[in-house]
Nucleic acid binder design. Sequence first.
RNA 1: GGGCGCAUAGCUCAGUUGGUUAGAGCGCUACAUUCACAUUGUAGAGGCCAUAGGUUCAAAUCCUAUUGCGCCCACCA
Length: 875
Amino acid sequence: MIDEIPKQYNPKDVEDKWYKFWEENKLFSAKPSISKKPFCIVIPPPNVTGILHMGHALNNTIQDILIRYQRMKGFEALWMPGTDHAGIATQNVVEKSIAKENLKRQDLGRDKFIQRVWEWKEQYGSTIIHQLKKLGSSCDWQRLRFTMDKEYSQAVREVFVWLYEKGLIYRGSYIINWCPRCQTALSDEEAAHRTLQGNLYYLKYPFKDSKEFIVVATTRPETMLGDTAVAVNPKDKRYKKLIGKTLILPLVNRQIKIIADSMVDMKFGSGAVKVTPAHDPNDYALGKKHNLEFINVMHPDGRMNTLAGDYRDMDRFEAREVILEDLKEQGLLQKVEPHQLSAGHCYRCHTIVEPYLSEQWFVKMKPLAGPAIEAVKKGKIKFYPKRWTKVYLNWMENIQDWCISRQIWWGHRIPVYYCRKCNEPIVSKAKPASCLKCKGQDIYQDEDVLDTWFSSWLWPFATFKNQEDLKYFYPTSTLVTAPEIIFFWVARMIMASLEFMREIPFKDVYIHGTVRDIEGKKMSKSLGNIIDPLDIINEYGTDALRFSLISITAQGQDVYLSKERFEQGRNFANKLWNASRFILMNPDASVIKTDLCLLFKKDDLSLVNRWILSRFYSTLKSVEKNLEKYQFNEAANLVYGFFWHEFCDWYLELIKSNITDRHNQVVMYKILEKFLRVLHPFMPFITEEIWQKLPHEGSSIMLSSWPHIQEDIIDKKIENQMNEVCEIITTIRNMRSELDLTSGLNNLEVKISCVNKIKRAFIEALSPDIKNLCRLSRLSVKDEYRILKGEFVNVLKDMHIAIPLQGVIDIEKQIEKINLKVQKTEADLKSKQAMLANKNFLKNAPVEIVEKEREKLNSLKEELKKLKGVKNGLR
RNA sequence: GGGCGCAUAGCUCAGUUGGUUAGAGCGCUACAUUCACAUUGUAGAGGCCAUAGGUUCAAAUCCUAUUGCGCCCACCA
């Protein structure tokens, strides 16, 4: 039978096969069930333009582990999948694609362009979904949603109307972040601030009625064309007398006044600031306060407009250079200082955004933030790791209104209509037949669409199509996401859910780290440092990808990746594969029927069997504990360590010589079968493949239940006894290695001397195992054994091991070594004695700790005695 | 300017409420191949837990300060 199974695990042979099997048998589907409790995760919907990257791989592996684990634990587990229409990103992609035909979206017109986007979506939009399937994701695919689905769009419109009617949505002219490349407004969150090395330019503005100047400092000289005042601090002695004076704005020759405002920082620059109310948020506030003129000097594409006079049609940065040249020529550029500044960048195309005055739609956020703050403060929603709570609260408490209108075509069109006759806006879920005010029939819809996040914030509930499902699965259980979108998405979902559902969207938020390359840089296409998960799947297998990723992801820490990391996962899969091959060599279908607990209770199991059972359940217990705390790496490492180093390295090696023994067969089979179930959420494919080859009940490991912890099988005493045996074996191997007697040891007799009869009986019983694993032909165990001259000896707490090697061993060297050990033991003993003589320690430390220290002291004494005895024997 | 994270073996990192001898993976050294697995096994070397104070019977772990690196937020032109 074993010959049929290849020596190396080949993931390609099995992964697609089992995924198809699961999907075809609808093993991922979840339905409301009276007898089961729900467990639900909504996927952070990837963009339709998305291609799987390591961030997705990590994010979805975590979700799949949780879902598969809870499913096996008996919950009705729903993982709700879907994609996001990603307004700007998708529009950009399609614009690029039609550019190949030399077309701009304006050439096609709105309807035709949107048609093209839909076509693009049909063709490429499910790429990411196929990739998520490659990853093994057990989403309920029949529920696949898209943020522009009919029902979902309906929900978006309803929500808009709801907020408008509550007075929480308004329209107005404000300074917003404008991306000149995408030509749309952005929210504050969509303008990512980055520090740039720029200059601070000192410009001279002449007075109207004298030859004097006032000097202003600016980082964006091109905006001077829109200046409508210069402001100084009223307390500033230098400028006090100048307040109210008129200046001639250079290059444009507009008369502007010097105004006073305490907002001005006297220490910065020259202490006088140019005021451009249409191009800077601070200046905008000053403009409002002092009733200044708002002059917009820029086209939406970032070129200067007609109000910029001679500079019209120049790009903003080109205009900057020309303006500086011109000012210099006129002697109006006083000086230039290097200056670090931070500027917003469009999060989609990375263009520097322009603070731009325009009419937009906004959501008043303060009233929505209140309940969202409460829910987290009261612990109804918990962040893992905890520290994100603070980040969330800090943002929530300083929340600004949300600009939700976008000047693009792809997205949810704003449900506001206008009457051409009387200009009356009508906010409505559907297009009204006529104007409510003048009954006019000429009605048109607002041209703008909504921010993509204005639809994603409804994701935890708008994805449910019927009340029954909503009632059963909502609120969802856990949200798994990356820190980058706490503000964009997590915070807003909490606000939306509390507002529209009067209920939290999820109980736990698990924030995992960002995936970086080995140098700590964020993985990105432009840096060319991407490790493609699909390449890894191809080379190492999905299970290897998942396991390696998860085992290096400490809670909330960023993940540093290199390709070699995935070898660990691949090797583990291979180890599992080969251990299973070995176990499958002894196929006996009847083992499946043996009741493990019953067998255990009969009390005739060997120490080795009792030990591995105890270790299995101890491990299971820790794995569960860590999974519940979202400590996935810890859980993965426990599973790895148990299987490789305890089950394979020790257990299988120990029972190998007695493989036909009934008990050994049962235990070996049972542990493997249960272990596969524990490993299944981490490595779904290989565990299914092996499980199917083992004698099993049921059609898929996915449907089997998570092993139940058998507390009475966990036995620390047994574990300690076994550790002692392992220590003896390791010591003998060590001696052999030290003597370089790898082959020669077989003929020699190894003698173990124990302190007492009980110990001796215990060791003696296990001597066949020791002989076996050390490849010894002769081993004798005695109560007290006098060392003979010329023997090679090693001391092990309360026993010593001797190998007679007359003439081969340098006795002086041995004594020297033992002396060193004696010294160390004596020092340890001394510090332990001091510790136990310390009254404060005895008084303050817990009893168990004191007890432990006492035991340790005794064992040190024992060891010292042994060491001295051995030393004397050698002489 | 504010906030957060990190500093532990040659490298990449674990170390959960303070309590045995600080762990893993990779790398390194030596040995082992008719044995389920060389994607392996056995053994080994390698640590002043960033620095300086403090709290405590007890500190890698808690507190304070310092240094270095990274991230996030913020309207100083």
